[in-house]
Design a protein around this nucleic acid. Structure first.
Length: 356
DNA sequence: AGTTAGCTGGTGGCCTCAGT
DNA sequence: ACTGAGGCCACCAGCTAACT
């Protein structure tokens, strides 16, 4: 089971190993009720399982995470499972004593593949910690394509530009704004997880299951990549200033609700998200302040972030790539935005929003 | 296109010190 | 003497860039 720890594994494998550990160490039987991804946006977890306690099934919404070695990851899972009607359960490869204690503190139930567990409910209280991982296994962080900053950039480039997956690593690296080694790691991870198929030496690679990859990317983008984009908020006196703001001339692009409005005509934007190239950011912000009297405000409706992708990936003039607009909408946790995101994904699936 | 050495930054653990 | 907070430090994963 060493590979479980050092490599990135499939959610289904993680689930199976954790269920086996629960059965062997704690004599608790489980049954998988359903596996995601779910079509409805209310269910963004990975699976639903029944735990049999004294013969009675207890249903849990499951979120699988290969590595949970940071408090913010546990916190993110907690937040994600909060919106689910059934009790949430984190399944991971290994939780240290410290992380187990933290999960208990924030009331996040979990099981890992080594028999550590925290389960509570009517007539049920299990807290097992300190079960050790195998020797030689490192506590490693993932090098995953959707769990690291560089990996997310690479996955984003592949999702946004069809055909890019077959391009040389140097071209992908250039478009994604990451190093060559990072592309190598990311593509290797995508291959291992079945998102990329490689035909061997000289053969072209292909992207498989882009929809599933998009879902994973969407979940990880607000946690891993977005906080690195130097986000700053501003308030603008006029509520509909965005209507006549022409961004494409200034190198900035709309993300979030305004982009969704332009793409679908469906959503009336209450917030504005703009991505600006870091080099142009200073001059661009000056213009924003003089033209629209924008003021720095931590609660302002306008958020300005660094543009992190290369040229030619936009969904349209002055509009961020679809995947990013979709992720922005879902990250806002606003039901209106989620509905629009769902609508956009349908169009993307049909190929209507794919630029390249 | 792949490999790897070296740098960077984040995290966890240990130590110290102040307060009770 | 004990406990908790804060600071410091070592370790390690992630990343880059040079090299093959």
């Amino acid at each position: 089971m060493g590979a479980l720890i050092t490599g990135v594994i499939l959610e289904s494998e993680l689930l199976e190993h954790a269920r086996a550990a629960l059965r062997e160490r704690l004599d608790i039987e489980t049954e998988i009720s359903s596996m995601g991804p779910y079509p409805d946006l209310q269910r963004r977890h990975d699976a639903e399982i029944d735990l049999f306690v004294q013969g009675e099934p207890r249903r849990y919404a499951v979120e699988c995470k290969t590595f949970v070695d940071r408090r913010d990851v546990a916190q993110q899972v907690k937040q994600q499972l909060k919106s689910v009607a059934t009790p949430g359960l984190l399944i991971t490869s290994y939780l240290s004593k410290e992380m187990a204690a933290y999960c208990r503190d924030i009331d996040l139930q979990f099981i890992d593949t080594h028999g550590n567990a925290f389960l509570k409910g009517p007539g049920l209280l299990v807290y097992v910690t300190g079960e050790r991982r195998e020797t030689g296994a490192k506590p490693g962080r993932s090098t995953g394509a959707v769990t690291t900053v560089a990996g997310l950039r690479v996955a984003f480039t592949l999702l946004t530009s069809s055909g890019m997956v077959a391009a040389p690593y140097r071209e992908i690296a250039s478009k994604a704004g990451v190093s060559l080694g990072a592309v190598s790691n990311a593509v290797e991870d995508l291959e291992r997880r079945g998102y990329v198929i490689s035909g061997g030496a000289g053969k072209r690679r292909a992207l498989l299951e882009p929809e599933k990859l998009l879902e994973e990317w969407t979940l990880n983008y607000p946690i891993q990549l977005r906080p690195k984009l130097n986000g700053r908020r501003y308030s603008v006196p006029s509520t509909d200033w965005w209507k006549d703001a022409q961004l494409d001339m200034s190198g900035a692009v709309w993300g979030g609700e305004v982009a969704a409005h332009h793409l679908t005509g469906y959503l009336k934007p209450a917030t504005q998200t703009i991505y600006v190239a870091p080099a142009a950011r200073g001059a661009w912000l000056k213009g924003l302040v003089t033209t629209y009297r924008a003021k720095p405000d931590p609660n302002g409706s306008l958020e300005v972030l660094d543009k992190f992708w290369g040229e030619g990936l936009e969904s349209g003039p002055g509009i961020a790539p679809f995947a990013l607009v979709y992720a922005d909408l879902l990250a806002s946790l606003d039901p209106r935005s989620a509905e629009t995101a769902h609508l956009m994904r349908k169009e993307w699936t049909n190929g209507d929003l794919n630029p390249a």
